[in-house]
């Protein structure tokens, strides 16, 4: 394992809305389970930094942007659909099932 984490994730949330809180909890769980030690998660409250919304093309909240590895992907929603989250992160769920 390299010193710098392979996965760079940014989660954009809207304050402490129920969806945002759920998304953060779900995401942390998934990351801990599948990417332990290999990810860096940054959480941004769009209310605090509204200028980022335009820059990062945010429409829906919560949104998770996978900055690396490429390709960049946007994952929206409360991260409750674990299969879709893993697909979005580029992790093959079947690998994990084994």
């Amino acid at each position: 394992m390299s010193s710098s984490p392979q996965y760079r994730l940014v989660l954009f949330v809207s304050g402490a809305s129920p969806n945002s809180v759920r998304a953060l909890n779900n995401l942390k769980q998934i990351c801990e389970m599948h990417l332990k030690g290999n990810y860096k998660l940054e959480v941004v409250d769009v209310y605090q930094q509204p200028e980022l919304a335009k820059q990062e093309q945010i429409i829906a909240l919560p949104t998770l942007i996978k900055k690396s590895p490429t390709p960049t992907r946007h994952l929206i929603g409360d991260m409750s659909d674990r299969v879709k989250v893993l697909r979005g992160l580029g992790i093959n769920p079947s690998d994990i099932a084994i």
């Binding site: 809207s14 779900n26 209310y47 335009k54 429409i59 829906a60 992907r73 929603g77 697909r87």
Partner: peptide, 29 residues
Amino acid sequence: IDHVHIERSEIEETGEYDLEGLFIRLGYA
């Protein structure tokens, strides 16, 4: 001018969401 870029292939819907991002963005503009 704020160009909103939505590309279906780049987006994965993983659960409940709302368009608060759009509101914040528009409100900021």
